[in-house]
Design a protein around this nucleic acid. Structure first.
Lengths: 196, 196
DNA sequence: CCCCCCATGTAACATGTTACATGATTGA
DNA sequence: TCAATCATGTAACATGTTACATGGGGGG
């Protein structure tokens, strides 16, 4: 009898950035796929998606995983519309995502996702948790900026055999500058959130 | 009579960002796949790749497209090594990539690729062309920052029915800040490159 | 002797991109 | 009536990610 019905058999990969973005938006208020497409078209959220070709399949995956629940409205009409709401499991997934420790890797590889997490935090966790997030972010930035500066000094210090073009050096400078600005922003935001 | 004579009909999709990064590095000096892997592991170029699983196939594609030429060294030995050099066609492709007009879309969707272009420009085009690039970049930034600010004011201005959390607003502020910092950098770099 | 570095790859897989398909409704 | 908008999707495709495979050489 191989018919063991395993309930938790769903392969539960961690959601992609797009999937988190969809979860977060639907958490804000229930929406249809079309609504979500328009959000991505018309707001700076555009950074996180693109096209119905990605959004509709992602919504389907989230529904199958039990993180979203879709209900069809106007089923009788010739123009049905499927409105998605977030499930309690979906909310839990979102919460643990935004609450995760900020690692150096997040900053280096997925800084966009970090900001997405931050933008949803306000509706999901306490102000204290938001402050913790920013504090961890500041630590990670400090660490990484120092790394980058080491590289920068290696470039501009001694004449290397392998000559680095001035634009290469300037590009690195830009990278350092952008992380410094991020740090500035994080400090300012911390203050703004202070209960003082 | 068609004026377009198709010389060879290899399907010539435009290279991916990773492929441009490889072209640029090999243009700097001939390297093997392993060398390139190490560059990505050990420098801030890390932003543009990841793993041998992407790099080796990309090199093969570039060779087939005629943009790189690989020669096997130590073919007799038990540990051969394939060193890639850029072809004249590869250099031409690189040049036209870095010289392309800077569009708003590049800034919004592919700002990382923009900086990669910039970092290779020094070895490929004249200082004048670099200045043109920065000038175009500044224009695009001005335009986009204004767009973002419009969104920001829509959020913080009137109380909206759909309440936006404070972190959502702060996240947008961060976005604006980072583009402002980019603008600052571009202006500074322009001055630094001035023949004054 | 064992482990890590050199140096090359391949295989499975999920995801995103682009393009297309469908058909009702609304406004000019 | 004609175009744009609403609203849903599917199919083909290339790419990147993760994991694994191979095997010699050098240093402790």
């Amino acid at each position: 009898m191989k018919r063991n019905i395993i309930i938790h058999n769903m392969k539960r990969r961690t959601p992609t950035t797009l999937e988190y973005a969809l979860l977060g938006l639907v958490h804000g208020s229930p929406r249809s796929g079309y609504d979500l497409c328009k959000v991505f078209e018309s707001t700076p959220m555009a950074h996180y998606s693109s096209s119905p070709g990605a959004i509709y399949p992602a919504l389907k995956r989230l529904e199958q995983a039990g993180l979203l629940a879709g209900t069809v409205e106007r089923a009788d009409s010739m123009r049905p519309r499927k409105r998605y709401s977030i499930t309690s499991e979906g909310t839990a997934t979102l919460k643990s995502w935004v609450s995760a420790q900020v690692q150096r890797e997040d900053l280096v590889w997925r800084s966009g996702e970090l900001m997405l997490r931050f933008s949803f935090m306000g509706q999901l966790v306490s102000v204290d948790a938001v402050r913790r997030f920013l504090a961890q972010l500041l630590e990670a930035i400090d660490e990484y900026v120092e790394e980058l500066q080491t590289h920068y000094h290696q470039l501009s210090g001694i004449e290397l055999p392998e000559h680095v073009s001035p634009t290469g050096r300037l590009a690195l400078k830009q990278g350092i500058g952008s992380f410094r600005e991020l740090r500035r922003w994080a400090r300012e935001s911390l203050e703004e959130l202070n209960p003082s």
